[in-house]
Design a protein around this nucleic acid. Structure first.
Lengths: 197, 197
DNA sequence: TTAATATACGGAGCACTGCTCCGCTTTGTC
DNA sequence: GACAAAGCGGAGCAGTGCTCCGTATATTAA
C-alpha cells in the first residue's frame, strides 16, 4: 500500500524531541545525498550522513517515496501553484502551458534520477509516482483545458498522458550535450497545435 | 570497456561442442526469461533455466548487454533493414519515417523493460545502448534527411535525439491503458512538420 | 529528584543479486 | 588410453533493501 502521507507537514508536535531532530537531520542528509548520488542512493548512505541507524530512517520514512516526497515537497507545491498564476499572467493559455512545462522540466532535470523514479520504475517509488500525478495532473489539465478553449490546441491529449510523456523525455543522464529534453518537449508541444486550416 | 560483440554471429566454429550447446541453451533460456521477467531478470534465473552455472553464462556473455543484444539481434537487424525499404516503397519520405518509427516502437514495447535498458539507464547496459544507436541512428538519419530534402520536415532535429526521445517515450509499464506511447510519438512527429507558411 | 513508562534508537542479520575465481570435468587429439 | 586444452560449476564475496528486537532516552508522575 502506498503511504499517502505528509510526514513532515505536521511539525512533529507531541513527538519526542530526538525524533523531531532526527527527522530533520534525515531530510537534510537526504537532500545532500540525493544531489551527490541521485534519489536511488543507498539508504545506508543517507542514514550514515544523518548519523542515525537504519531503523530510524525506516521508522520516519517507511518507503523511499516518502523520503523523496518529503525532500521535494516544497518545490512540487511551488510548481503546482505556478499553474494558475501563469494562466493569469501570460498572454495566452498556450504560452502559460509552455512556461509551466518549462518550470516542470527545470525541476526534473536538476534532480538526479528523479524523472526516472517518477515514472513508476518499479522500485519503492510507487507513492512518489502517485504524488506527482495527484498534485500536478490537475494543474496541467487546467492549462490544457484553457488552451483548448482558446482554440490554441487541436489535439485531444489528456493531462496525464502529456505529463507522463514529458517526464519520460526527461529521463536519462543529465548534462548530455547530445540530448536536450527541452528540444523534444518543444516538438511535442508544437505537435499539439491545431492542424492548419 | 564495452564488448562490441557478435558472439553468436560466427556459429561457434572451432569451439567445443558443449560450449556451442550451452550458448544455444542460454539464448533460448534468456529469451524465455526475458519475456517472463524482463531484460533485467536475475542472471541466476537465466542460468538455472538453461541448466548451466553462473560461470558459464558470464563466459559466453560477459555483460548483460551482450546477452540482450544476442537475443534480439535478428529483430534489430530487421528494423535496420526496413528503413531503406520503406523509403523506397512509401509515398513520401515522411510516410516512410512514420512507418519505420511504428516498427521500432512495436519492437520496443513488446520487450519488457527493453526501452528502459536501451536508454543508458546505468546498469550493465552500456553496450546495449551503443549497439542500438550504432545500428539504428544511421537508418533514422537517412529517413530524416530524405524528409528534409522533400520539404516535409521543418525542424533541424538530429537522428540521435529523435531516437532517444522515442525510446524514452516507450519507457514504462506496458499494457497501461492510460498511457499509449504511440500517441505522444505521433505528436512528436507532427511537431516536426514545417511551420505553416 | 527519582522512578516508571512509553517512545525511539541502532545495527545485527537475513534475503537477494552481481560478479569472480579456481578446482574439477569434458572434449578433442595423438 | 593418455594428455592438454577448453570449458564448467558453484562457492563465496560485496553491496543493498528491509526487519526485528534488545537497549537507551525523553517525558511524565510521584
Amino acid at each position: 500500500m502506498a503511504t499517502t502521507g505528509e510526514p513532515e507537514e505536521r511539525p512533529s508536535r507531541g513527538r519526542r524531541a530526538d525524533a523531531r531532530r532526527n527527522q530533520q537531520a534525515l531530510l537534510t542528509a537526504a537532500a545532500k545525498v540525493f544531489v551527490a548520488s541521485g534519489v536511488d542512493a543507498p539508504i545506508r548512505a543517507i542514514a550514515a550522513e544523518a548519523g542515525v541507524g537504519m531503523g530510524t530512517i525506516y521508522r520516519h520514512f517507511p518507503t523511499r517515496s516518502d523520503l523523496v516526497i518529503a525532500v521535494y515537497r516544497h518545490q512540487v507545491e511551488a510548481c503546482a501553484e505556478a499553474g494558475p498564476r501563469l494562466l493569469a499572467e501570460a498572454d495566452s493559455p498556450f504560452t502559460a502551458l509552455r512556461r509551466w512545462v518549462d518550470l516542470f522540466v527545470d525541476f526534473l532535470v536538476t534532480k538526479h534520477g528523479l524523472a526516472q523514479a517518477m515514472q513508476s520504475g518499479g522500485g519503492g517509488f510507487d507513492a512518489l509516482h502517485a504524488y506527482f500525478l495527484d498534485r500536478l495532473v490537475p494543474v496541467c489539465g487546467q492549462l490544457l483545458d484553457a488552451s483548448v478553449e482558446a482554440g490554441e490546441i487541436g489535439s485531444d491529449i489528456r493531462a496525464f498522458e502529456l505529463m507522463r510523456g514529458i517526464g519520460n523525455l526527461c529521463v536519462g543522464r543529465e548534462n548530455d550535450p547530445d540530448y536536450d529534453p527541452r528540444r523534444l518537449i518543444e516538438l511535442l508541444l508544437r505537435g499539439l497545435r491545431p492542424p492548419r486550416s
